[in-house]
Design a protein around this nucleic acid. Sequence first.
DNA 1: CGCGGGTTTGATGATGCTCAAGCCCGGTGG
DNA 2: CCACCGGGCTTGAGCATCATCAAACCCGCG
Lengths: 193, 193
Amino acid sequence: MHEVLFKNIKTKVDLTEAEEQQLRNFFIPKRLRKKQYLLQDGDVCLYTAFVEKGLLRSYTIDEKGNEHIIQFALEDWWISDMFSFLTGEPSAYSIEALEDSELLLINRKAYDEMLIIVPKMERYLRILVQNSLIATQRRLSSKLSLSAEENYKNLIAACNNIIQRVPQHMIASFLGITPETLSRIRKQMATPK
Amino acid sequence: MHEVLFKNIKTKVDLTEAEEQQLRNFFIPKRLRKKQYLLQDGDVCLYTAFVEKGLLRSYTIDEKGNEHIIQFALEDWWISDMFSFLTGEPSAYSIEALEDSELLLINRKAYDEMLIIVPKMERYLRILVQNSLIATQRRLSSKLSLSAEENYKNLIAACNNIIQRVPQHMIASFLGITPETLSRIRKQMATPK
DNA sequence: CGCGGGTTTGATGATGCTCAAGCCCGGTGG
DNA sequence: CCACCGGGCTTGAGCATCATCAAACCCGCG
């Protein structure tokens, strides 16, 4: 366990042997089977999770009953509802395993302590969040300027590994289009000209 | 000068008198007149800016020639293209003053030094970026699930102060709709029923 | 007074949605 | 082993929303 996590952290900041040992204690291993939930909307998000293995998604359901996928997280990624985790407010999101998964969880108390005891983690987290922000801004401006087909092509180019592991209607939801539209796009991409 | 900045920092982390003095040296005051640019797309983003006074926007122009506004920044906010600032790659964004503005700039070298000399700033920046991420995710999922009219109403509710200082076609661009559509929405909101 | 940018208005058209039906395929129970 | 069921994907027809293009309007400014 923990190997993937520490490898990831070390790509961003240096860790001493001692620090690594200290960190280890803050995280709780957890297995989730396909279709199990890490967070149900309406509950407070008690954990931030690092995915050692598997695949999860976070999503929200709007007033019209439509699902919108906020994020996919596969191995070597983090997932949580940061807003709920930090404020203690109930979450508008749900987080669900799409495959059998192995996670490392950290709760709010451990999170705060970790930042005091290993302040380097401030830097690590800042870099992580910064990268998420850049990616989310990109996704937003793609959504504003490109057609559904262009967005789908870009997604294939960027995240083919995700597409192959996720049912098609969830890809549609991630792109903000209906399953029908995605199906038609794919059909029309298969027979160009 | 600097007062707004330090007040802002102190809402997130405590600063000693000494730290405040050290920080002061990293920032370069800069005035920008309306319509002047802090960053032109194609150039590398050399500075991250804190807005002491005034109003700026960052935007990008897509292949079809349409502007898309990424962010407005008024007093007490930060603005930059973090991706370009951090990587040194040329930026796809431009940053322009919409009013005469007073900024505090920090360049990449000073930024790195600042984080070493005053490590508390890691925490401050992490919190800032986290909040931006949460806001951007919200904006994205609004764009995915709501109609143009609903998005406009939400914007009024959340940022009336910005709307009143910005020309209407830029609001449209921020919402990802055309100026014509926004005009029609406003007309129809004025005479309900 | 006339120019010019920003906003409004109108007509038309494209993109993507809704609703409904059919299809494919894997899983389950008889 | 097969028949049936159900979920997910596809297909089709009609429709809503929003974009495009073009013209008119409004108003501040030289």
